[in-house]
């Protein structure tokens, strides 16, 4: 297990290094931030002053060298716009996005797993078919449209829930959280639902396929031959095997929910990292974009690592092969 862990961490570091290079070069190729930052009537001397202050007059390899050296020390540069360390700017928005992603993750598990298992146990029934058909809508409807429709229904027509913003927050260990206030939860519900419907549909389909497959296995027949109750077979024998692919996919999807909640956050004017990214791209705030992408890479890498470890926890076969190797 330890060898496995060390090897996996080594691979993760490689991925981060390669991504850092790619991200830096890609962002460097996009637009001229000075033109956007400086006032329109600034003269040549002022423009040059800004360029020098931001370090944009140096050759690209030197800029890259400085970037890497600083990054190794945990400094991903200062935002051109906010004049604060880019990481700080992002991290201020991080709890909001994290809350949104986690809420969406929980919703998609709560919706997806039971519906998928029901559809998998009775694939030919009307209920099973309806679930599968509905799930197609879940991942073919565009996210922003779904968000707008939910706002229209719950916020405009029914007036049950607020349409935008994050609501009241409380400070827990210096982090602003809205999960613990009623107002915060009310604000969180619609964006989280919007974000979760796609994932829930995905989970439904994976859970359905997994359940159908597992139900045909010999060990399920043997479990029935032992005289176990239907519930015991479904909740212990089937669920544990069926969750293996669901955990894999949800792990990856959690990363994408954190990193790319961009559309949902924009529709609901939710002050998270996604909205910050859009704003930064509009203003060519390179350090924030780079820092954001780097954080995303790190988050993905960490989630993948955790999924692999979780895998080993659920599935003894993974542990066994690794301890032999």
């Amino acid at each position: 297990m330890l060898v496995y862990l060390i090897r996996r961490i080594g691979q993760s570091i490689m991925v981060v290094a390669v991504m850092a290079t790619l991200v830096f070069l890609a962002v460097f190729a996009v637009g001229d931030p000075v033109a956007i930052l400086a006032s329109p009537d600034a003269d040549q001397r002022e423009l040059e002053a800004i360029t020098t202050r931001l370090g944009l007059d140096r050759p690209i390899y030197e800029q890259f060298g400085i970037f890497v050296w600083n990054a190794l020390q945990g400094d991903l540069g200062r935002s051109f716009v906010y004049a604060q360390p880019a990481v700080d700017v992002i991290l201020q928005r991080f709890p909001a996005t994290m809350e949104l992603a986690l809420a969406a993750l929980i919703l998609s598990i709560l919706l997806g797993v039971p519906l998928g298992v029901i559809a998998g146990l009775k694939p030919e029934s009307l209920l099973g078919r309806s679930i599968m058909t509905t799930s197609i809508f879940g991942f073919s409807l565009p996210n922003f449209w779904l968000g707008l429709m939910l706002i229209l229904l719950f916020a405009v027509q029914l007036r049950w829930l607020p349409a935008s913003g994050r609501g009241e927050t409380v400070e827990v260990f210096g982090v602003h959280l809205s999960l613990f206030t009623w107002d915060g939860l009310r604000h969180l519900f619609l964006p989280a639902l919007t974000l979760s419907l796609y994932k829930a549909s995905l989970v439904i389909r994976i859970a359905q396929a997994g359940t159908r497959e597992v139900m045909l296995q010999d060990y399920v027949r043997f479990a029935r031959a032992k005289g176990l109750s239907y519930n015991r077979i479904v909740f212990v024998h089937v669920l544990k095997n069926m969750m293996i692919p669901v955990v894999t996919v949800l792990g990856l999807e959690l990363g994408s929910m954190i990193a790319f909640a961009v559309v949902t956050e924009t529709v609901f004017a939710y002050p998270g990292m996604g909205k910050l990214l859009i704003d930064s791209i509009n203003r060519l705030d390179r350090p924030v974009i780079v820092a954001y992408l780097m954080l995303t890479v790190v988050i993905f890498v960490i989630i993948n690592l955790v999924v692999d470890l979780l895998y080993a926890a659920i599935d003894p076969r993974v542990r066994l092969t690794e301890s032999k190797g």
Partner: peptide, 24 residues
């Protein structure tokens, strides 16, 4: 029937590699 299975009549199957649940 469930109470009969495993109590009055039991069964073993052909492929021992697949009759036991791998994750339990």
């Amino acid at each position: 029937l469930r109470r009969v299975r495993g109590k009055d009549v039991a069964m073993i199957f052909q492929d021992p590699m697949t009759t036991l649940n791998p994750v339990l």
